[in-house]
Computed example of a mutant assay.
Amino acid sequence: MGQGPLNGLRIIEFVGIGPGPYASMLLTDMGAEVLSIHRKGAEKSAIPDIASRGRKSITLDVKTSEGHAVMMRLVAEADGLIEGFRPGVMERLGLGPDDCKAVIKNSFTDV
Score class of each variant (00 low, 15 high):
Arg92Ile: 02
Ile37Phe: 10
Leu35Val: 08
Gly16Tyr: 03
Lys101Pro: 00
Leu27Asp: 06
Leu81Trp: 13
Ser52Glu: 15
Lys56Ala: 15
Ser24Gly: 15
Leu26Asp: 01
Gly20Arg: 07
Ser24Ile: 02
Gly80His: 02
Gly16Glu: 14
Arg53Lys: 15
Asn7Asp: 13
Ile12Glu: 07
Gly4Gln: 06
Lys63Gly: 03
Cys100Ser: 05
Lys105Val: 02
Ser107Leu: 01
Lys105Ile: 01
Asp61Ile: 02
Leu6Met: 11
Asp98Met: 08
Arg10Tyr: 13
Gly31Tyr: 09
Pro97Ile: 08
Gly2Ile: 03
Pro97Leu: 11
Pro19Gly: 04
Ala46Tyr: 06
Met90Pro: 00
Glu33Trp: 12
Phe14Ser: 11
Leu60Trp: 12
Thr28Asp: 10
Phe14His: 13
Tyr22Val: 08
Val62Pro: 00
Leu26Glu: 05
Leu6Ser: 05
Pro5Ile: 11
Leu60Asn: 00
Val111Ala: 10
Met71Gln: 06
Pro48Asn: 12
Asp29Glu: 14
Glu13Ile: 02
Ser45Gln: 06
Ile17Asn: 10
Lys105Tyr: 01
Ala78Pro: 00
Gly4Lys: 08
Ala51Gly: 04
Ala51Ile: 15
Glu13Asp: 04
Gly67Cys: 06
Leu35Lys: 14
Ala23Pro: 00
Ser52Thr: 05
Ala78Arg: 05
Pro5Glu: 10
Gly31Cys: 10
Ile58Gln: 03
Gly20Asp: 05
Thr109Gln: 15
Gly88Asp: 09
Tyr22Glu: 01
Ala69Tyr: 03
Asp79Val: 01
Ser52Lys: 13
Ser45Glu: 10
Leu93Gln: 04
Asp49Tyr: 15
Ser36Trp: 11
Arg92Val: 01
Ala46Lys: 12
Ser45Cys: 04
Lys63Ala: 10
Met25Cys: 08
Gly2Tyr: 11
Arg86Met: 12
Ser24Trp: 08
Val34Met: 11
Lys101Asp: 09
